[in-house]
Design a protein around this nucleic acid. Sequence first.
DNA 1: TACATATGATCAT
DNA 2: TGATCCTATGTAA
Length: 274
Amino acid sequence: MPEGHTIHRHARRHQKALAGQTVAMGSPQGRFSDGARRLDGRVLETVDAHGKHLFYRWEGAETLHIHLGLFGKFRFYRTSPPPPPSVNTRLSMAGEDTTIYLAGPTICRLIDPAEEESIRSRLGPDPLRNGSAAQKLSQFHVNLLRRRIPIGAALLDQRVVAGIGNVYRAEALFRTGIDPHLPARELASEAVDRLWSESTALLRAGVKAGGIITVDPADVGARRRSEIERDERLYVYGRHGEPCRRCGNTIATTEMASRRIWWCPACQPIGAGA
DNA sequence: TACATATGATCAT
DNA sequence: TGATCCTATGTAA
């Protein structure tokens, strides 16, 4: 389920499995036939993720741009793939020993290097991308200072920071003790620093684990990560009315940026983070 | 069988 | 702000 950690995972895996190879491309569903025909039999050079966007670069300076949206899914087969369901398989990619199917993406299209650059330029710093950590952090500061919207809304704006979604925004704010309603520009510099480093750590952990786990084991009575139960992985997301895992207070919820957000009114009191 | 919902984003108004 | 697109899943009926 796709926030930045999932996308970066796909990028790594696809790069490893297909880059440098001639790839057979198809569109069983028919909705990407033209693009698939164009790339069929070409060599895939690199797979790169930026926020929730994937860029597959092919010989001949063309890029396959994929965005999973809320519903998109990859299926990955090392050997003998089943026949692709033609109702929903937008794209099939087959290399030497790997076949990948894509269903339900928001975006699956061919773009040129200029378009790729223009998409990237609209994305904020991605904690999961290589590059100067200091530079990305200072960009995050600048982006927040420009917005009067609540920090809870700003974190979902991919121009502010790329890769965070509805789960991570709630969890990162909880872990930093910041009130989601606080206007972005009013965050103390030190709170912005903490928010960035928490987000980065959580996203990285998500890539590593292949899923979102934000609780410290001790807060759910576990000794190590592997002991954490499925329904105990998060502090606040989706926990309306349940007790806070840190203080026992009741988790609250509201709508913010057209999505539901949850927080602990005691751990993240009004104005906290200013 | 139907409906609500979901870890996303864009476009029109 | 609301409508729309995309698909799978769990729950209600």
